[in-house]
Design a protein around this nucleic acid. Structure first.
Lengths: 187, 187
DNA sequence: CGTTCAGTTGACTAAGGTCAATTCCCGTGG
DNA sequence: CCACGGGAATTGACCTTAGTCAACTGAACG
């Protein structure tokens, strides 16, 4: 079965009919490695569900790519601020691997939630997930040193080293690649 | 005129009749200095609009109060995750001064948005504001040193020293009170 | 093979933390 | 009105963590 279907079945209590109705609003799109879901300056009009592959979120600051998030299978991909506020994105979201997303257009979601108010559950789950992730990241940056942030990340995404280059992981943690290398060697 | 009224008039394009309808759903509540809007473990059921006064958001971590947000006049007060997810709060929100909030119950907001769909604008503005604040905080923690974070905060809230003790400001910035004192004297 | 770029390692530096001693400020009670 | 007490803020000396700069290794790919 498709990831998106089992995700929606297991996360919300929709009837088979409702699920069918919801799934019909999504369209499948493939992304090549390094292809962009969203670029700085664009308006984000979709939320995507990662059926396969992975994506990084980053900003260019002082000429450096600063990674601010990852998305793997069963995560949602979107730039919340641009989507909700209808403003240009300050971030870039690109595929690190060949990937597949189920896309849902924001206007379509709006429309769908008229006939099926329970769809608002999806919307608030999405909001909650994004909000939780970014506050947790700030909390970790304040309360944990680099080594503990790294261990927390490994606990959250144990397979990250298999799928993301180490210098991206370091960037996400807010440290230099050299420092992450030392943390790892120190064991 | 009340802050809440001019805020809603200026932020959204509602008709006078709509505004009246919306305002009727809010109730005014006073908070004594040090009184709590929300405590760890409680379920957050309201959003509040700060008519007067100010509030801090904090978590207790390793026995220390870690400040994670402030709210002043014309800000919204709420714990988004608890409100949306209907889960107990991990944070505390308390008044630093004698304050007044206009409270809107989440179920009431739900109900109101049935008859007046434009109310969803308020909801998404709220979400956007919270999301923006927390991602900006994480971005600042990654990209700026303590001095620049302090200057960014002063730019955002120029009057903060008049209304918040310095050790709370330091906590929000993720540094020790001694360090903030040194940053200020160095100027 | 040689080029390139990720990752490692070493030596040194800088930002911020820690511990401790004052000093400042403000509310309270005599 | 003044003196006192207690918490906030400042300052100094020293320490720890992560950054910087640079050299080197190793794997991937043309």
């Amino acid at each position: 079965m498709k990831n998106i279907q089992s995700y929606i079945e297991n996360t919300f209590s929709f009837s088979p009919l409702e699920i069918e109705k919801i799934l019909k609003c999504f369209t499948l799109k493939s992304f090549q490695k390094k292809e962009y879901f969203l670029r700085e300056g664009q308006y984000c009009k979709n939320v995507g569900f990662v059926e396969k592959g992975n994506f990084i979120y980053y900003q260019i600051i002082n000429g450096e790519e600063k990674i601010c998030d990852f998305a793997f299978e069963n995560d949602w991909v979107s730039h919340y601020k641009s989507l909700l506020g209808n403003i240009p994105s300050e971030i870039n979201i690109k595929a690190l691997e060949n990937s597949e997303l189920y896309l849902l257009n924001i206007d379509k979601m709006e429309e769908l939630s008229q006939t099926l108010p329970k769809v608002n559950l999806i919307r608030s789950t999405l909001a909650e997930q994004y909000f939780t992730k970014s506050t947790q990241r700030a909390t970790n940056l304040i309360n944990l040193d680099a080594k503990n942030r790294y261990q927390a990340l490994l606990k959250e995404i144990p397979f990250i080293h298999q799928r993301v280059p180490q210098y991206y992981i370091a960037s996400y943690l807010g440290i230099k690649p050299q420092s992450l290398s030392r943390i790892r060697s120190e064991k």
